[in-house]
Nucleic acid binder design. Structure first.
Lengths: 212, 212
DNA sequence: TAATCTCTGTGATAACATTCACAGCGTTAA
DNA sequence: TTAACGCTGTGAATGTTATCACAGAGATTA
């Protein structure tokens, strides 16, 4: 089984490689990709090895083929549908960011408990009242959910999504969701990240080349 | 030196503990906190050990004291100022989320290249033109920056912030920023996270208790 | 042709993170 | 008073992730 970290890096590589291809590049060496991705050449080679693609010692990795290999590994056979719950500031930003912009993931429905938001189209995505989650998730064959509601509502929302048959959640609420065994949850906690930055920024100020 | 993962978990513990305290709880055992944080009891104990706090085998950890210890470890002596660059959909969501809501981190200035946004107050935070980064970061003693601009502009923004003396960056752009040695960067890549969810959600559908 | 160069693929190793497992110790119960 | 309990703190073991370092191979040069 492939590691969670590797999957994350492959996703990053892919976007970097797409930019290169758009710039007219044909191929790339592991150390170049490593520099762009902020890793080491060995790690890039291992990651690429993991998906079964092989480069050439002379020309490095062929951009087009490598992109195809990554896509073949990461993506589902057809587009996966996504539901977003919580059309507040964050939810709207996510809609603006995702709707119609991803080649294989499609946010096809948004939900909010506020009836004012229901039945409107926001950033190109239709909004529904929260009660309709189960019906619409099933109807539209939605497998993934984004939880962008305040912390107190997050668990209830997760329950609803899981009951409706979602297989993975992206959670922005600052707590850990309890979900059925087979549902994958990725937590994206902005406050935690900012606090980490605050902490290590402070560390860096003192630890001037303390060669430990 | 304490691990990056541990710092992240401490940040999460803190918010969970604050909720408990608000509910009138007095103390907690490692296995209870572990359940809430989605970890193991041993890990909670190790994390707490790392910051030098000790609980009692009988009553567990005292909420108030533990919170004080975590705060003492994670927080700076006084409030740290933060600058946000990029007042698009995401930037505005972050302002709404942070401004005036964090006890020790304060977003005191926002910047955008769009002159229409400059000199307005958004969600309680004054916006400035991008050119003013250096002056205002110095003037307001800002140590942390949030990069919420589109990918093509991210590196230039990071350069400006670093030159102005920022010590840590929270980066939302889907690429790795090049920064001076001593600047800490935390990347929060929403697309990567959603792609991870998509991938592992798919995995979970098949890997039905394959013992190994 | 032979020597050299630079890169990949990967076994071996090192660094890091988590979990196990148990001694030690107040507390409670008999 | 003594035994049993349930928790913490932590050394040791395990598991996971990243790096090292080098054999192998096409290309280039002499």
């Amino acid at each position: 089984m492939i590691s969670e970290r590797t999957i994350g890096r492959l996703s990053l590589y892919r976007r970097l490689l797409r930019d290169l291809l758009a710039d007219g590049e044909k191929s790339i060496f592991s150390h170049q990709l490593a520099a762009m991705a902020g890793g080491t050449a060995a790690q890039v080679r291992r990651d690429i090895m993991a998906i079964g693609y092989s480069g050439s010692p002379v020309h490095g990795y062929d951009l087009e083929q490598l992109l195809k290999s990554i896509g073949h590994y990461l993506d589902a056979a057809q587009t996966q549908n996504v539901a977003l719950v919580g059309v507040g500031n964050l939810g709207r930003a996510l809609l603006a960011y995702f709707v119609g912009r991803h080649p294989t993931l499609s946010v096809v429905a948004a939900f909010d408990s506020d009836p004012v938001k229901a039945n409107r189209v926001i950033h190109g995505c239709r909004c529904y009242p929260l009660e309709d989650v189960k019906a619409i998730v099933r109807e539209r064959d939605i497998r993934l959910g984004i939880v962008a509601v305040p912390a107190p509502e997050a668990q209830a929302v997760a329950n609803a999504l899981c009951q409706a048959g979602v297989k993975g959640l992206l959670n922005f609420a600052p707590l850990r969701l309890w979900v059925p065994e087979h549902v994958y949850v990725e937590n994206l906690d902005v406050t935690m990240s900012l606090e980490k930055v605050a902490f290590f920024a402070r560390q860096g100020e003192f630890e001037r080349d303390t060669t430990e």
